[in-house]
Amino acid sequence: MSRLTPKVAALLVLPPLLWAGNAMVGRLLADTVPPLLLNAMRWWAALVLLLPLGWRAVASAERRAQLRARWRPLALLGLLGVGAYNALQYLALTTSTPINVTLIASSTPVWMLLIGALVYGEHPRLAQVGGALLSLAGVLLVLVRGDPAQLAGLRLVAGDLWMLLASLSWAAYSWQLARPHPSLAGAARPDWSWAEFLLVQALFGLVWATAAAAGETALAPAAAQAVRWSPTLGLALLFLAVGPSLLAYRCWGLGVAAVGPAMAGFFSNLTPLFAALMSAALLRQPPQAYHALAFALIVAGIVLSNRR
């Protein structure tokens, strides 16, 4: 892993900006499209856009044999990064606000460090532990709505729990990128380009996402039938397919490869800042004083974790 450079920092700042936009669009569409269906629609649109760039990954019998030989690790990548994370976030947005959801996602560095230590034997530096604790303090501040006295009687709403699960899923996905299965590492990895690799993840992830959307439709058919199709919905899906899907995943993959998932995880904590600005502008949900304090703790965690 290399040191953090301005170029890598720029790569890691763009995904939080796009993810904040993803949270905003997810909240705006919460009453228009069921969350699991929205996730499947997003990734089907992304797959269509990826095909001209990554079609070689499935273009020949030899290439398809490579996928079949690696279906287990690829299915796990697809579940964590495509099938679970975004679906859980859209579920969270049905009962919570973009600011709260993105601030709760700031617990990701904690899960990054825990998974690294428990699964991969990566013992965090003291500065990383301190940065993670600062981020966790920011998350707790949001959960108690700025009143520490409420901590004893804290009751998590459904959206909070869904977002905590989404953060855990994303941390596990990032470690799978940084410490891939032996069949996806080194000389054993097929010579996929970034677009081909993302296409492969989307193919496997869509199996999970489509199955989840089908289950959602079976349980609540009226919600799926009530989807209101419009040019606005089409533009929203195009943004979700291009920005949070293609561009964000490409930049995140490059950033994780450069500095590791533990360091990259702290940059995901910039998402609440962008979400707060967008919420104030579009949803008329201005951030409160405790949001500012929570963000200050998050930034302090990024700075501290980068100390050597």
Rank of each mutant, 00 (worst) to 15 (best):
L51E: 08
L51C: 06
L51H: 12
L51S: 13
P52S: 15
P52W: 14
P52N: 13
L53D: 02
L53F: 14
G54M: 03
W55H: 12
W55I: 08
R56Q: 13
R56L: 07
R56I: 05
A57S: 15
V58R: 12
A59T: 10
S60K: 01
A61M: 08
E62T: 13
E62I: 10
R63Y: 01
R63F: 01
R64E: 02
R64Q: 02
A65C: 01
Q66V: 00
Q66W: 08
R68D: 08
R68V: 12
A69T: 05
R70M: 10
R70A: 11
W71L: 01
W71Y: 04
L74M: 14
L74I: 11
L74D: 06
A75C: 12
A75E: 08
L77T: 03
G78R: 01
G81W: 01
G81L: 03
N86H: 12
N86T: 10
A87V: 07
A87N: 09
L88N: 05
Q89P: 00
Q89C: 10
Q89M: 14
Q89G: 07
Q89E: 07
Y90H: 14
A92D: 11
L93M: 08
S96I: 06
T97S: 15
T97D: 14
P98W: 12
I99S: 15
I99K: 14
I99R: 06
N100C: 14
V101W: 12
T102M: 11
T102A: 11
L103A: 10
L103I: 06
I104M: 09
I104D: 05
A105D: 13
S107V: 13
S107R: 03
T108E: 01
P109F: 06
P109E: 05
V110D: 01
V110I: 10
V110P: 07
M112D: 03
M112Q: 10
L113E: 05
L114C: 14
I115H: 07
I115S: 04
G116Y: 05
A117E: 04
A117P: 06
L118C: 15
L118I: 15
V119I: 08
V119R: 07
Y120R: 06
G121D: 10
G121A: 07
E122T: 10
E122Q: 11
P124L: 02
P124S: 01
P124Q: 03
P124R: 03
R125L: 12
R125N: 13
L126P: 05
L126Q: 13
Q128C: 08
V129A: 09
V129K: 02
V129N: 03
G130C: 09
G131M: 02
A132D: 04
A132E: 02
A132I: 04
L133E: 02
L133D: 01
L133R: 00
L134I: 10
S135W: 06
A137H: 06
A137D: 14
G138H: 07
V139Q: 01
L140G: 07
L141N: 08
V142T: 12
V142W: 09
V142E: 11
V142S: 04
V144Y: 09
R145A: 11
G146H: 06
D147G: 01
P148F: 05
P148G: 04
A149E: 07
Q150R: 15
Q150P: 05
Q150M: 08
Q150G: 10
A152V: 04
L154N: 14
L154M: 12
L154D: 09
L154K: 11
R155P: 07
L156T: 15
V157M: 12
D160C: 01
